[in-house]
């Protein structure tokens, strides 16, 4: 099962990235779980300079950007 984490304290762009990621995961037909990491101390442990950020199976894939679902689909299929 793919673990997808959205790093962000809850702003509109964080929510949009989460929605796009959910859409991408459904389209990819993968088995997944999605978690929104909103606690700043937890976010800092990932070492990202900006949010929102997308983490796939523990690896940070995108920082400070809201990618469209099609691009996220490519990232989570890897």
């Amino acid at each position: 099962m793919k673990k997808l984490q959205i790093l962000g304290t809850g702003c509109a762009k964080c929510i949009k990235l989460a929605a796009n990621t959910e859409e991408a995961a459904k389209k990819a037909g993968i088995d997944y779980e999605i978690e929104k990491v909103t606690d700043i101390n937890q976010i800092m442990k990932f070492g990202v300079m900006m949010t929102p950020a997308l983490v796939v199976d523990g690896k940070v894939k995108v920082v400070g950007k809201v990618l469209p679902p099609a691009e996220i689909e490519n990232l989570i299929k890897d």
Binding site: F46, G47, M50, G58, V62, G64
Partner: peptide, 16 residues
């Protein structure tokens, strides 16, 4: 952090 290949640091450097 980049030298240690920690993904959050590396991706931040790529996306900044």
């Amino acid at each position: 952090g980049i030298g240690a290949a920690i993904s959050g640091f590396m991706q931040s450097a790529k996306d900044v």
